[in-house]
């Protein structure tokens, strides 16, 4: 299935370049931070890739900007905000929490809550803790099944 995305990647630009050592920050701790930030930012011209993974020209430029800001001493939030100010919500791979994404972020809790509620409602209906004994017909059918499953 990923071939679809791949076909796209090829259209999107010179994919599969490997990266350039000169892009990296000399300080490993800063480079680590820059990578973590870059993984949160979407490559605008690719499909669902972060700028760290993509080799499109724009992604490379944004990688460089992220590293410049990190080297200049910006906080992680400030670096993300810098890119967000220019490209909007679409660039954030972790969607910001707001009215239009409330249900998205609430999905795990909504799903769990709805499931629990349904289970509780269905159980409350009457909980004879002992199982209902089999009716004579069921008993006969069970016996037949045990003897010969084809019955």
């Amino acid at each position: 299935m990923r071939r679809l995305i791949l076909a796209l990647l090829l259209l999107a630009g010179p994919a599969f370049a490997v990266g350039s050592p000169s892009e990296m920050l000399p300080d490993p701790a800063q480079e680590q931070r820059a990578r973590a930030i870059g993984r949160e930012l979407r490559c605008m011209v690719c499909q669902n890739e972060s700028i760290e993974e993509s080799q499109a020209g724009l992604a490379r430029d944004l990688r460089l900007i992220v590293r410049e800001r990190v080297a200049a001493g910006d906080s992680d939030q400030a670096v993300v905000a810098y890119v967000h100010d220019r490209y909007g919500d679409f660039v954030l791979l972790r969607p910001p929490f707001r009215l239009a994404t409330a249900a998205l972020w609430g999905a795990p809790f909504l799903a769990l809550g709805a499931g629990l509620l349904a289970i509780l409602l269905l159980r409350r209906r009457g909980a004879p803790s002992e199982p209902v004994p089999l009716s004579p017909e069921e008993r006969a059918r069970l016996a037949a099944l045990e003897k010969d499953p084809t019955a």
Binding site: V45, G57, L58, D61, R86, Y87, G88
Partner: peptide
Amino acid sequence: PGRVAIDWGVYG
């Protein structure tokens, strides 16, 4: 360098 383009939010 393409930097002004990024300030404009140009993506292609």
